[in-house]
Design a protein around this nucleic acid. Structure first.
Length: 555
RNA sequence: GGCCUCUUCGUCUAAUGGUUAGGACAGCGGCUUUUCAAGCCGUUAACAGGGGUUCAAUUCCCCUAGAGGCUACCA
């Protein structure tokens, strides 16, 4: 009977069958310094890169590398129904772009490195099969011929009768089936799954240490879970145990949704006779919906997708820093103390990682982190990053920026002289068009319809003409800032405006307006908006021709 | 329904059996400024509720409420 069963499995998964001893030898204990952590990120290729996956990858990668360990990528593609073509490339690419150094697994299109592979579960079918057969031989697993409908009916019945659902105890129909009936099913070619024969009991408790949550106790697993699906591939539970053992993973840091299955996983490790890894369960990133929290959803929330951050143009290091701060809230203190050090130098700790609750993604904070990051970049870095983004998402702007690089760099350089007081307008590259578009004449013209409207609010047209005329009379592009201010003040004096805002505040009735009105008109005419960077610098960057042209538009 | 977990300013969080409950972002106000930012200074704002234990509880225990997770031949 057993040999018939095994040959059925062999037919399902053709190819070699290994002995456990062979596998132990093939994947030896890693030779690493004491304390080195071996971690992994194990996504499913569903064609979607979740920001939470990047977060988990980041935590695992940092923990591994800061302990001189190994971080590897394993593709969990045992669910053929959900798999999407090309999804692995998306994962590999994303990890690469986010600066995650992958030591083993697929590191580039169809390039796999590491001695513990293959790192794609679908290519490990023979390994799982080998262990399944071994379990069968030991009587620690058995075939189950229940149909999905049958299982569903049982589940419904259990629910109806308010008893615990599942395949256990007296509900484990095939657990103690007679050889005769198994033979019968085999002969009839009935599809089957292989179930794990659980020795646990409902009343038993199992204690363990979670790397983040600390000491925990949970009920033992008494479910005879499926370890091999009908098509011959393992379920997550089984594949994870086999892989993390063979790949010699020391720390499994994964989403909190796995927490409840720790007893099952520990039980599987014990049955296999293996040392389990240390588990750590990380809370997911959430979103508020009404009065309840929920995990960022692939379908409902665009920001769940890593692609969203790229489209918006958040610099990768800024996203990393935001996530790092989510993982360890003292990151920002460290950053303040070490403004120029690479974020990799920061030591991530388990203790700080135990977010009591799933955090909400805060874009206001994200913007701030990002502004700070961009403010630190040099003009050339800014230009390169900006163009890299616009090339993908804003061809028009790329065109303007590239057609006069010197001019563009001068624009970027405005209020960027002193690192301590760099202007922080740009949080993401998609802000660029708004922040610097008006420097380019055709963009400016397109926007200038708003001009007259804003202008009327500030000052009457005739008055504006007088201001412009008086200003142009003395303005020189070579003026120093002091000279420039002095000239503006002169214009104010001549036309009856207060020379300082203070003066105007004291006696508003004795002036036609304040100096702010004068510069305000100039600003609107030059930039098309009521706020902009330092006007003196804006004028110098625009150049005398452009300046005259824009100012004369009012006359 | 069962099992498990969590709850500190709007958000991310820190700390503690005795504190003016700290920081960051956002907000607000001021200074400065040609303006908008930045910067600097200041400021609003939290221990979910109820019982215990204790000289003392945000901290320890219990209950309630709210939120979350798991309860698949998905991961």
């Amino acid at each position: 009977m057993l040999s018939e069963l095994i040959s059925r499995i062999e037919a399902l998964i053709p190819g070699p069958t290994y002995s456990p001893a062979d596998l132990e030898q093939k994947y030896p204990i890693r030779n690493l310094p004491a304390g080195a952590m071996v971690t992994r990120i194990a996504p499913s290729p569903t064609g979607f890169m979740h920001i939470g996956t990047v977060y988990m990858a980041l935590v695992n990668e940092r923990l591994a590398h800061q302990s001189s360990g190994i971080f590897y990528l394993r593709i969990e593609d045992t669910d053929k129904k959900r798999e999407v073509q090309g999804a692995t490339g998306l994962i590999v690419n994303c990890l690469q772009r986010y600066g995650m150094r992958v030591d083993e697994g697929e590191v580039a299109q169809d390039v796999e490195v590491g001695n513990y592979g293959p790192y794609k579960q679908s290519e490990r079918a023979n390994i799982y099969k080998s262990y399944i057969i071994d379990l069968l031989r030991q009587g620690k697993a058995y075939p189950c011929f229940c149909t999905p409908e049958e299982l569903k009916d049982q589940h419904d019945m259990q629910e109806l009768q308010k008893i615990r659902t599942g395949y256990y105890g007296r509900f484990a129909k095939w657990r103690d089936a007679s050889e005769e009936s198994v033979r019968e099913q085999l002969a009839a070619n009935t599809p089957f799954t292989i179930r794990f024969r659980s020795e646990g009991s409902e009343s038993g408790r199992i204690a363990f240490e979670d790397a983040l949550k600390g000491h925990r106790e949970l009920p033992e697993n008494d479910q005879d879970i499926v370890v091999m699906k009908t098509e011959g591939l393992p379920t997550y539970h089984f594949a994870h145990v086999v892989d993390d053992h063979l790949m010699r993973t020391t720390h499994v840091l994964r989403g909190d949704e796995w927490f409840a299955s720790v007893p099952l996983h520990l039980q599987l490790f014990q049955t296999m006779g293996w040392q389990p890894p240390t588990y750590g369960h990380v809370m997911p990133i959430n979103k508020m919906e009404g009065s309840s929290k929920r995990k960022l959803s692939k379908r409902k929330d665009p920001e769940a997708n890593v692609a969203y951050y790229d489209e918006q143009g958040y610099p990768v290091p800024a996203v990393i820093e935001y996530l790092l701060n989510l993982a360890n809230s003292d990151f920002e203190d460290w950053r303040k103390a070490n403004p120029t050090v690479d974020a990799r130098e920061f030591q991530l700790t388990f203790q700080k990682l135990q977010n009591s609750n799933g955090a909400l993604f805060d874009f206001t904070k994200m913007d701030d982190v990002s502004k700070e990051w961009i403010a630190k970049s040099s003009i050339d870095e800014f230009f390169a990053e900006a163009v890299a983004w616009t090339t993908m998402y804003d061809a028009e702007l790329t065109d303007r920026m590239q057609s006069d690089i010197a001019y563009t760099k001068k624009i970027i350089g405005i209020e960027r002289h002193d690192p301590a007081t760099v202007r922080k307008d740009v949080a993401k590259w998609s802000d660029l068009r708004h922040e610097m578009g008006y420097f380019f004449d055709d963009f400016f013209t397109a926007e200038s319809a708003h001009l007259s409207e804003s202008l009327v609010k500030t000052m009457e047209k005739k008055e504006a003409q007088r201001v412009v005329a008086a200003f142009l009379e003395t303005y020189q592009i070579e003026d120093t800032k002091e000279e420039w201010i002095a000239k503006i003040r002169t214009v104010c004096r001549e036309l009856g405006y207060a020379e300082t805002a203070k003066e105007f505040k004291l006696k508003p009735e004795s002036f036609a307006g304040s100096i702010a009105n004068v510069t305000g008109v100039l600003r609107i005419l030059l930039t098309g908006r009521t706020f902009s960077p330092d006007l003196y610098e804006v004028m110098r960057v625009m150049g005398i021709e452009r300046l005259r042209q824009r100012l004369m538009a009012i006359t």
